[in-house]
Simulated assay, not measured.
Amino acid sequence: MSDPKVVRGARTVLLLMCQDRPGIVARVSGFLFEQGANIESVDQHVDRDTGRFFQRIEFTMTDPSRSGLALAGAFEPVAEALGASVEFRDLDRVPRVAVLASKQNHCLVDLLYRARTGDLPAEIALVASNHPDHAEVCRFFEVPFHHVPIVAGDKASQEKQLVELIASHEVDLVVLARYMQILSDWFIDHYPNRIINIHHSLLPSFVGAQPYRQAYDRGVKLVGATAHYVTAELDQGPIIAQDVAPISHRDSLEEIVRKGKDIERLTLARAVRRHLEAKVIAYENRTVVFP
């Protein structure tokens, strides 16, 4: 007897979080089977401190004319019974990303390159900056660039323009690629767990201007970077990715800065990719990041 043929439709991800209890896996997988879904991968985790259960299921529909996203409504009774928060995400839809940057361009250029070459599963819908410096590189990558300065210290008006730009481009995620402005609570509230920031991991030891100079003067042996979701508390949001690089006593200040920028590029790209692939669940001030 030949094996039954599985027709693969659009890839969909189901993200689920609830209190742990027996039978969750059976309940969710049984629902997907009854709806004609073919499960292709499953990752799950239990936080033993809080008793929370987390699950990521990637599936396709055996009937390609049906959308996996359409199961969200039918799943509501299951979610209610489990007391679960749930998200369905279409993996075959290319997410649209807005990048905010200030004068430094190392993270910005890296994201533009990765998106252009397909290394990052995203379309950079726009780049906005409070400085005009990135217009040329955005022209090279054929990405719309918007100079949105802060005029006479009127930050509220500048943020309003940014929100309007992001809305007009139907953006799914906002990335701060070394955007050196503190965002207001009003701005952050528009995009809960949809703003990713990158900063060096020299905080809180070396705050203010020239952190790498301060680190060099103190003879640090590691530099690193942290990528996290942005919350109202500055640089304290749920961490998505971190990395470090060793520093030698032989390294010059310029070499330390170069290593720091390399780590910032890689860490930010890793965090953005994990979010776009629906591999991150944020809760309280923590994250579960599936491989």
Rank of each mutant, 00 (worst) to 15 (best):
Arg8Ile: 14
Gly9Asn: 01
Ala10Trp: 04
Ala10Tyr: 04
Leu15Cys: 03
Val25Ser: 04
Arg27Gly: 06
Val28Phe: 04
Gly36His: 02
Gly36Ala: 03
Ala37Tyr: 01
Ile39Gly: 07
Asp43Val: 01
Asp49Met: 07
Gln55Arg: 07
Thr62His: 04
Thr62Leu: 10
Asp63Arg: 11
Pro77Phe: 10
Val78Asp: 05
Ala84Met: 09
Asp90Thr: 04
Leu91Val: 09
Leu91Ser: 06
Val97Arg: 09
Leu100Trp: 10
Ser102Asn: 12
Lys103Met: 10
Cys107Phe: 07
Ala115Phe: 14
Thr117Gly: 09
Gly118Ala: 08
Glu123Tyr: 05
Leu126Ile: 14
Ser129Gln: 08
Ser129Thr: 13
Asn130Ala: 09
Asp133Gly: 11
Glu136Val: 14
Cys138Pro: 15
Cys138Leu: 12
Pro144Arg: 14
Val148Ile: 15
Ala152Arg: 13
Ser157Met: 07
Lys160Asn: 02
Gln161Ile: 00
Leu162Asn: 02
Glu164Leu: 03
Glu164Arg: 09
Glu170Ala: 15
Ala177Arg: 15
Arg178Asn: 08
Tyr179Pro: 03
Met180Glu: 06
Met180Asp: 04
Ile188Gln: 05
Asp189Trp: 05
Ile196Ala: 13
His199Gln: 11
His200Trp: 11
Ser205Asn: 10
Phe206Asn: 08
Gly208Gln: 07
Gly219Tyr: 14
Gly219Met: 05
Val220Gln: 06
Tyr229Asn: 11
Val230Ala: 09
Ala232His: 12
Glu233Trp: 04
Ile240Ala: 03
Gln242Cys: 13
Glu255Trp: 02
Lys259His: 07
Gly260Glu: 12
Gly260His: 01
Asp262Pro: 01
Asp262Leu: 11
Leu266Tyr: 11
Val272His: 04
Val280Gln: 05
Val280Lys: 02
Ala282Ile: 00
Asn285Leu: 07
Thr287Pro: 09
